[in-house]
Design a protein around this nucleic acid. Structure first.
Length: 424
RNA sequence: GGAGAGGUGGCUGAGUGGCCGAAAGCACCGGUUUGCUAAAUCGGCGAAGGUGUCAUAACCUUCCGCAGGUUCGAAUCCUGUCCUCUCCGCCA
């Protein structure tokens, strides 16, 4: 959520930003409403003050006078209520508009209406593998070595679910271990988070569980929803808190299962593990001071690169275009790993995503910080980034590490967790 | 899941309709005094948002888990909700 004052003072910039992000929002309406609201608020405060004074005087007044003063107080309250009601109505409408305005985008973010405008800015240190044999995709590899059982998953929970078996299960957990150890050595706090969260928290992070076209599974007759990422729980962790400036930046590394309905994704249906309803993800989440967040985004990206460099998986880094940014993001980088079995002759596929959400989420969740000895508080900045989403990372590992004899080598850094050098 | 108790300022804790933004103690800050790893004594001391000022000052609003309601007036009464504790049940 953008600051209202900021919107009013930067109408043109906000409008331009909406256009760049390919969303249509009635900024003018918001401005007009806010002006009316402010005027009403002043009226209300005057009436309220008078009513308070009147109420206070009753206790001290003589019995004979009381009835008249009570009458006076009642009248003032009624007047106030009328104005208040109008104010609240305007406030609600304003907030509705304000909440859907996306975050401002970073000046350097490529401008464009969709992902076609995304800009490749770097490559990983691992060269793209060349194969002198017909490559299999991860579905075929999984079947060959009995690693992934999609039919079983469908039988139990429907399309989009799967069982990981044998070395497939071990590989998934090895990826988790690897990412958690990597990050905890960097000072991130390893965290196991709830897999469910209240609607209020989901909204604060920028997911709309009960809205149309939601990606979120909700639990019937409760206020709980299955999380789509531990970004939700790690961001919700400090809802309403006032953090001390000196404890920032605060780095968490969260492990959760992630559940996504993928509603409306039918057209983009992908084979195998690429787009599934449940996967496991190690997520980085940072709370920072405003002046730290630009640098922190680069830091999170560098960690993602390091992880995939250590896994020796070829990838490219993409600077996300304005139209492809999620609402809360100010700037976003994706890592796209080379997936040799994807498409006709291999394609890059998104494996991580890191965003600087500046104070957009913090404002919704009311997460602030305080400088020691200073009065007042400020909103923190929040950032998130994928360390490893196991399903997609697994695609990259299986497909890049396949050998001519049909076996699959295990990346060096994962071997300690799996206890074998190759699969099959 | 059932029954009960409770959520008050940095902490402990009093407060059942107006004199309560809230006693008292601890902690903290400042003064005095005696002196030496502290005691006595006096004074000060909640937060957020806003108006205002060069800056102070001053002022306003809101806040006793959270959200509503009753009332001229709510920490106090009512409803809902979240959380904590105790007992019972169930259980990895």
């Amino acid at each position: 959520m953008l600051d209202r004052k900021f919107i009013i003072e930067n109408i043109q910039a906000v409008k331009q930003n909406c256009q760049n992000r390919n969303v249509n929002i009635e900024i003018d309406r918001l401005v007009e409403l806010e002006q009316r609201r402010k005027k009403l608020l002043q009226e209300i405060e005057v009436l309220n003050r008078k009513a308070n004074e009147t109420a206070k005087s009753i206790g001290k007044a003589e019995a004979s006078q009381r009835q008249a003063i009570i009458e006076e107080g009642r009248k003032l309250r009624q007047q106030k209520e009328a104005s208040q009601k109008e104010h609240d109505r305007i406030e609600a409408e304003t907030l509705e508009i304000q909440r859907v305005i996306p975050n401002m985008a970073h000046k350097a973010a490529p401008i464009g209406v969709d992902d076609k405008a995304n800009l490749e800015i770097a490559r990983g240190s691992t060269e793209r593998t060349t194969f002198d044999f017909p490559v299999l995709d991860h579905v075929e590899l999984g079947e060959k070595h009995d690693l992934i059982d999609f039919a079983g998953g469908a039988r139990v929970a429907g399309h989009g679910f799967y069982f990981l078996k044998g070395a497939g299960a071990l590989l998934d957990m090895a990826l988790q271990h690897f990412a958690i150890q990597f990050l905890s050595e960097k000072g991130f706090i390893p965290t196991l988070t709830p897999d469910l969260a209240r609607t209020e928290i989901m909204n604060g992070i920028g997911f709309m569980p009960r809205g149309p076209e939601t990606q979120i599974y909700s639990i019937h007759e409760t206020d709980l929803n299955l999380v789509a990422t531990s970004e939700i729980t790690l961001g919700g962790l400090h809802q309403g808190d006032v953090l001390a400036a000196e404890e920032l930046p605060l780095y968490y590394c969260g492990l959760s299962h992630c559940y996504r309905t993928e509603a409306g994704a039918a057209g983009k249906a992908s084979r195998g593990l690429y787009r599934v309803h449940q996967f496991t993800k190690i997520e980085m989440f940072a709370y920072t001071l405003p002046e730290q967040s630009d640098k922190t985004l680069e830091y999170l990206r560098s960690l993602e690169c390091e992880i995939f460099d250590q896994l020796k998986i070829p990838y490219r880094v993409v600077d996300t275009a304005t139209g492809d940014l999620g609402g809360p993001a100010y700037r976003k980088y994706d890592l796209e790993a080379w997936m040799p079995g994807r498409g006709e002759e291999g394609e890059f596929g998104e494996v991580t995503s890191t965003s600087n959400c500046t104070d957009y989420q913090a404002r919704r969740l009311n997460i602030r910080y305080k400088n020691k000895g200073e009065k007042g508080t400020h909103f923190v900045h929040t950032l998130n980034g994928t360390a490893i989403a196991t399903s997609r990372a697994m695609i990259a590992v299986l497909e890049n590490y396949q050998q001519a004899d049909g076996s699959i080598l295990v990346p060096d850094v994962l071997q300690p967790w799996i206890g074998q050098k190759k699969i099959g």
